[in-house]
Design a binder for these strands. Structure first.
Length: 291
DNA sequence: CTACCCTTAGCA
DNA sequence: TGCTAAGGGTAG
């Protein structure tokens, strides 16, 4: 009825057995999630090695950042932020203490990358992604959910007038990119290569999502295409052809990044890129999706 | 059963 | 205080 981008219901497609979120019950704030709040998978995650496939450099990058503490990528001993939430929960035992996972920049990056290609994930895809990121199925699902909502909100606030027209198939030139600006320039890029923040970006604890969102968003465009679940599902991510040139590195970051630097003074210097190869070093399982 | 909406609540 | 992960309830 309203301006809703005629959402969702991306038919989960060939539903996977969904062995990931077997919890039939309302999840108790317990350790069942395997999320970043856990010492990181153990028995349940054969991908333990995937846990910290990140180059040491990156580990270092996150090491200092606040959220890195909760990052599953960095297997920190109990005392890190991971436990922070747990401790709180502990302190209020029996109480409904909500666990707030702080995703690592890396996780967010991958999530965003995926989100840009696909607004809706099937159960299986969600599961796969969760495996890659060492997050729970639910977390990934939630993230996409929240992200979609955020997108819609952004969308509305950006063109309230158009919002009641068919923003769906309209060539709305506005494209929501989450808050990872570099994606914008890369959206149409089929290579599958992921741009990488400048070292500062990765490193700088100040460079959080919040650094970006509100402000940078206003500069972004929203492509209606991004809102068609089916379209997305049939596109890039699921399209094998979309991964053809993975080895080629991308040209320097788009101008959007320049803007970013100016606006925030956070990013300076040369921007680096991961080749798919590199990404795969970080996320061995990532290849599954690009092939 | 799953996704969505609304809401709560943790953390910077 | 804002952002956003996640809980609860509901609809398909």
């Amino acid at each position: 009825m309203s301006a809703d981008p005629a959402p969702p219901q991306c038919p989960p497609g060939p539903q996977a057995p969904n062995s990931r979120d077997p919890s039939p019950m309302p999840e108790i704030y317990g350790p069942r999630e395997n999320p970043a709040s856990l010492p990181m998978s153990s028995a349940e995650t054969p991908r333990a090695e995937t846990v910290s496939p990140l180059p040491s450099s990156m580990d270092l990058l996150t090491q200092d950042s606040p959220d890195s503490s909760t990052s599953p990528w960095v297997k920190l001993p109990p005392t890190s932020g991971e436990e922070r939430t747990a401790r709180k929960e502990d302190a209020t035992q029996g109480k409904k203490r909500r666990m707030r996972t702080v995703f690592s920049q890396t996780q967010l990056y991958v999530l965003h990358d995926r989100f840009l290609r696909q607004k809706y994930l099937s159960s299986q895809q969600t599961e796969e992604l969760s495996n890659i990121l060492n997050l729970s199925y639910k977390q990934v699902k939630n993230w996409f959910l929240n992200q979609r909502k955020k997108s819609k909100r952004w969308q509305k606030s950006n063109w309230p007038e158009q919002s009641n027209t068919v923003t769906q198939n309209r060539s709305a030139t506005t494209e929501y990119t989450g808050f990872y600006p570099c994606h914008q320039g890369y959206l149409p890029n089929p290579s599958g290569n992921l741009p990488l923040w400048s070292s500062q970006a990765w490193n700088n604890p100040n460079w959080s999502s919040q650094t970006w969102n509100s402000q940078s968003w206003s500069n972004h465009s929203w492509n209606s295409q991004t809102w068609c679940p089916q379209a997305w599902n049939n596109q890039a991510w699921n399209n094998p052809l979309h991964n053809c040139e993975e080895e080629s590195l991308q040209p320097p970051i788009p101008s959007i990044f320049e803007t970013a630097r100016e606006s925030h003074g956070v990013l300076q210097q040369s921007t680096k890129y991961f080749s798919t190869q590199q990404i795969m070093d970080f996320f061995p399982n990532y290849s599954e999706h690009s092939t």
